[in-house]
Amino acid sequence: MSFTKKLLLAIGIAFIAIQFVQPAHNKSDHALSTDILKIVNIPDSVNAILKNSCYDCHSNNTVYPWYSNIQPMGWLMANHIKQGKEALNFSEFGSYSPRRQLSKLNAIANSIRDDIMPLSSYKLMHKNAHLSTNKKTIFINWAQQSKDSLSGIN
């Protein structure tokens, strides 16, 4: 067997072997009382943006695409979800202190304005996660209004 053939065979075996290590899925059925839906008013247009563009990495429920069953894609996703939820979890928004809630809403508006969210690798695979200028404006205004309404209460 030539070297190239051996190498290809080794890669093939490694590829098959890693398929058996599936990361745990990020899915929970019951809606938490700490969900952002319970804290601030979310119009349908904004809700659609959150669902299509953010929740896969920033909530307790990810909608998994077919390729997430192929490793190492699934591992990469699991890693994004872990880091994403640490930075911001919309399902647990209500458990943040009032100070943190305002701080996070500020970061949300900034992340859209600066085009760093959703992550570009994600936009590559999820065409409808991409935000048009119009959607961005709607979303930023929503974050701003939510901030104002929360700071009025607190």
């Binding site: 590829f15 077919w66 390729y67 192929i70 190492p72 894609m73 990469l76 690798s121 695979m125």
Partner: peptide, 17 residues
Amino acid sequence: KKIIFGLAIAATTLAAC
């Protein structure tokens, strides 16, 4: 095709990461 496609993406994302 899907698998090869998946591999290609995996390779690029890994590189990016």
